[in-house]
Structure formats: C-alpha cells, structure tokens
Write a protein that binds this DNA or RNA. Structure first.
Lengths: 139, 139
DNA sequence: CTGCCCTATATGCTACTATCAGATAGGGGA
DNA sequence: TCCCCTATCTGATAGTAGCATATAGGGCAG
C-alpha cells in the first residue's frame, strides 16, 4: 500500500518529482535520481567554480531534478568527486556569512564529464531503441 | 583502488558491461542497470508470454544489458511484477526438463509499460538537454 | 539581547537495489 | 555415475538515495 498516491499502486503519475522511497509502489517511476548528480555537478562546475549551497540551487536547472535535491547528497558527492581528483576546493572566508568551500573542476574531471557525455549518448539511444520496440509491438 | 581497471580510478572505459559494484571507482560509469529490468521484462512479455529462463536470454536483446543479466534479479522482479498484478503466471509441466512458470502481461501491466515509455521519453529529452548544455559550455 | 531566519557545510540512519553466490531439481548424454 | 544444461529460487553483501539532524556565522525584528 502506498501512502503517497493511495489506492491502486499502478497509478499513471510518472513524474520524477517529490523524491522516491515507495518500495514496490510504482506511483513514482523514478523518484531516485540515480547517480545523475555527479555529471550535473561536473557540468555546473565546468561553467564556473561554485560552492555547495549554490550548486544545490543550480541543480534544479537540470531536468533530472524537478524538486530541490538533497543537501546531504550534494556535499557528499562533492567530497567524493574531490577524493577522485575530479574537482578541487579552496575555502573562501571573505564576505559575510559562513565560510564557503569553492569547488573547481580539474582536467581529470573534464575527462570524466566527457566520458559521462558518451555514456548519456549511449543511454539515450538505448531508450530510443526501447521506445521503437514498443511502438512496433503495439502497432 | 579498483580491482577491475587497475591503476587510476578515472579511466575512460565507460561501457555499461561486466556488472558494477566498484564503489568510488568510476571505471564503469553505470554497471548498475538501474531498474530498467522491469520495463524490459514487460515489453518482452508484451511481445509474447515467456518464462524466466527464456526472458533472461531475451533481455540481452535490450541495449541496457550487454552482458548476461543476473538470474536472481529476473526471477525476483517477475515475482514483484506479479505481486503488483502487472503480470500473471501459470505452470507448464508438459515438455521435458523442469517445470516452467509462464508469465503473461496483464492490462494493468500494459498501462504500466505505457507509463514507462512516457518516462523514457522524458529521460531521453533530459539527457539531450544535458548534452546540449555541455556542447555549449565547451564551445 | 533574545529569538528567528537565512546562508553554508557536514554527518547519522534507514530503506531500497543490484550483484554475487549458492541451493534445489529434472533430464540427457558420456 | 558424473557432468552439464535447463529452470527456479533464496541468502548475503555493498552501494545509494533520501530523510532528518547537527553545527555555525550573521542579520534583523521585537
């Protein structure tokens, strides 16, 4: 039983929003953002260096994130990207408010992003194939 | 340290094969098939009824599965799909070898598959946007 | 000067999932 | 008899997202 969509578990609302975690309930087909957060962060940082809190807001610009993404996820992934040398950071304490950790993309990170782009092209075409298979089957 | 690609953890091999589970190693960008198994099973069953072992082989026809998919995953997802009334099954003991559980897609399952197709269209266009954003940034 | 909100970063916990490994079992061939 | 192929199913583990919470600086209203 699903406490979000109520009633039948096979509702047709398939938006990616609201976050997931509904177990066997398929009222949200893909609440989870499925590790798209890393390429989104890398692309944001390719555009210009930024800090976690700002990146959090910029993530909503990607259609993978219709709602507000999780703050914990953003900071944790930035840390992981830094451990892999895909990004680097420096502290900025200049202006008002708490200190900011400014992240920039590294050459390795740019290579990684390029690999992600290739991956996305593959997935996109795999989905096109799937849709085509479906169209042929229902015809 | 990655025991698959050895050396630097940011190698550029980004195929979807060999299965995942390399933690922070990005030598495989997406070893996980990320719940694509359910729509693949539904579409296979839309084409014609089938049993688990056969579906296992038919899954390789989808480009989400370059290697052989996990047998456990197939049977477990079939069970889950049946619990959700997206598929139904009957035992077939007629011919040689062990009994087969033949699955068929239900009307609810067909609706679900349709919802998945819409979802795939969304994801596909989100990826197109991402790639376009990238192209603009590197230009 | 206290409480509240906004900015900013970080960690703990839990549920879900994929993957790996192995168990069970029928039947055919060497 | 042993091994392999077909066929289904279960156990254990590791990675992940999402939620909640902790910490902390600074501005501002009452």
């Amino acid at each position: 039983m699903c406490d979000t969509c109520h009633g039948p578990e096979h509702g047709h609302d398939h938006g990616m929003g609201h976050g997931g975690g509904h177990g066997d309930c398929h009222c949200k087909l893909s609440g989870k953002v499925e590790r798209f957060i890393q390429p989104c962060l890398l692309l944001s940082l390719l555009q210009h260096p930024s800090h976690g809190y700002e990146l959090l807001e910029r993530l909503t610009g990607f259609r993978f994130y219709p709602g507000s993404p999780d703050t914990g996820a953003v900071y944790r992934h930035l840390r992981r990207l830094e451990n892999s040398d895909y990004v680097e950071s420096r502290w900025e304490t200049g202006d008002a408010g708490p200190a900011k950790r400014i992240y920039s993309i590294t050459p390795d990170g740019q290579d990684m992003l390029k690999a992600w782009i290739e991956e996305f092209r593959d997935r996109k075409s795999a989905m096109e194939d799937f849709i085509e298979k479906y169209e042929r089957s229902v015809k």
